[in-house]
Structures are given as C-alpha cells and as structure tokens.
C-alpha cells in the first residue's frame, strides 16, 4: 500500500489544475460560478449563432409573418407564433443578440466611467475630488428612467442601442461613488505608503496596488450594471417607449401585452422572452456570488496555506 502511494507521487501528472492559473482554477471549482457561466455562455452562443440557429427570410427579418396567427408550439414553430403570425422562436433567438449586446456594451461603458471617475476622485483628493463628486452627485439625482422616457419621445422611437447608451450615460454615478469610497480606504493603507516609499509612480500605485484590491467590487459592479441595463431596456421596450419594430426580449413582451396574450391564453408569446430575461439575470448573479468567494485571496486558498 505504502509503495503504491510513493509511485503515485513521483509521477508528474498533467491535470486541469496544473494547466490553469490559480484564480481560474478557483473559478472552475466554484459550482455557483460554473452554473452561472454555463447558462450565460449558452445565451452568448445562441446570440452569436443566431443567423445559423434561426435563419431569417430576406424580407421582414424576424418580424415577417410566416404562419397563422397565435399558433401553439408544434414541430414547425417550436415556440408558436404571435398574433401577427411571426415565429416566436426566431424572435427570441435574435432578441438574445440584441439584449446581450446592449447589456454588455452599456454595462462596460458604465464600469469604465465608474473606474475612471471613481478612482481618480478618490486617489487625487482635493479640488479634483470636489469637482468630480459634484459631477457624481448631479448624475445621482438625475432621474434615469424619466430621462430615458423624455429622450425616447425626443428621438423618435429609439432603438435598443440608443436606450442602452442613454442608460450608460445616466447611471454610472452610483458605482463611481462606491469605487471612490473604496479607493479612499485603500489609499490610506500602509501598503500604499510602502509602495510610495519603494518609489512607485502614482499610475502604478493606482493600477497595480489599489485596483487589484477592488477587482471583486469592479466585477460585481460590472455584472450589476449589465443586469440593470438588460432589465431596464426590457422594461422600457415593454412600456412601448422603444422602437416597436426592433427585435428584443422587451419588444416581444410589449407585443404579447399589446395582443392580450393573457386573455387569449397565448402563453408561448411571453413565457420564452420572460424566462430568457430571468435566466440571464440569474446566471449573472450566480457568477457574481462566485467571484465574490474567489477574489478574496484569503478565501481563495482553502488548502495549501
């Protein structure tokens, strides 16, 4: 028995663990993060491969009438048809594309603005901090949703991307405040003073000493922003404030509501887009939990400490 163990330890084995960097291994081992990633990646693939999964007719795209109105799901139309005879499956698949790209695009713009404004404000202090804090406060009290409604009345029927952009510009301030306060805490820590004594320039202190300590905060803010944009874009489209001819989950819900799907019991017109929104939100939240557990180095090394 003892002999066997010795032989085993002597042989170098190529395992997944040896191939991955430490943080990624932690991610792979975290069930919450993995389930979230799996669901999210499925949607990303659906979005990327939308033209292959559900080829669109040349004219009319996903909104073209292809069958009888309000047909229940069957072999031909997996998710049934709408009142206009549109294929719900095609709409959901192509809506995935729109909703995810708006969500991730605007979410990324939000987090970049947060990092730039928040960390600059917290690290520089003084007059710069005063001015940037003023800017943040102005954008904090700026009511995002009514503003988008006003803008949608102004720009005639804004598409999902316009809505995403307006959301990005109006809703970065909250995250920036959070990052600013965290920067203030870390800026006064001894390891920042030690880096200064070692002779590190300011930009390196910000990027390599302060920012890595906020990675979980940055990533969770980013994911939160993505969820926020996806939900808000769906909400606005559902309220009919977007372009009703665009193909997104929110627009699908808008048409389902408009066509009294509940009264006509056409559940297949609102369950698929609604479920998609819920699943994407769920997966991103799971990833967020997972990252929270991994990003703290103290929690990271359960063994081998």
């Amino acid at each position: 028995m003892e002999n066997q163990v010795e032989i085993k330890t002597q042989r170098p084995r190529v395992t997944l663990r040896n191939l991955l960097p430490e943080w990624l291994w932690g991610f792979v081992r975290n069930p919450k993060a993995m389930l979230g990633t799996f669901i999210l990646l499925s949607f990303v693939f659906i979005g990327l491969l939308a033209p292959d999964i559900a080829p669109l007719p040349e004219r009319g795209g996903a909104n073209r009438m292809v069958g009888r109105p309000h047909q229940a799901p069957d072999d031909e139309f997996w998710f049934g048809t709408t009142r206009q005879g549109q294929d719900v499956f095609k709409q959901v698949v192509h809506g995935t594309r729109t909703s995810l790209s708006v969500g991730f695009g605007a979410g990324t713009i939000i987090i970049i603005l947060c990092i730039i404004v928040g960390i600059t404000s917290g690290y520089m202090g003084g007059l710069v901090d005063e001015l940037l804090s003023l800017l943040m406060n102005v954008f904090l009290v700026l009511p995002g949703l009514p503003l988008v409604i006003v803008i949608s009345g102004w720009v005639d029927q804004p598409g999902p991307y316009t809505i995403g952009l307006v959301l990005a510009v109006t809703s970065w301030a909250y995250g920036a405040r959070v990052l600013r306060s965290q920067t203030l805490v870390i800026r006064n820590s001894e390891f920042v003073a030690a880096a200064r004594v070692a002779g590190e320039p300011s930009w390196r202190i910000v990027l390599f000493e302060i920012l890595p300590n906020m990675i979980s905060l940055v990533v969770s803010s980013w994911i939160g922003a993505v969820v926020f944009v996806i939900l808000t874009e769906a909400t606005l489209s559902f309220l009919g404030l977007g372009n009703p001819n665009a193909v997104s989950w929110g627009t699908s819900l808008y048409w389902a509501q408009n066509n009294q799907a509940l009264l006509t019991r056409a559940w297949w017109t609102f369950v698929p887009p609604g479920l998609c929104i819920a699943l994407v939100g769920f997966s991103l939240t799971l990833i967020n939990y997972g990252i929270d557990e991994i990003s703290n180095p103290r929690l990271r090394s359960g063994e081998g400490g």
Binding site: S189, E190, F191, P212, N213, P297
Partner: peptide, 8 residues
C-alpha cells in the same frame, strides 16, 4: 499585516 499588499 497591512504593509504588504494582499494581492501580490
């Protein structure tokens, strides 16, 4: 405990 950056 404070003078070494925990991420490095």
């Amino acid at each position: 405990f404070a003078s070494l950056n925990p991420v490095h």
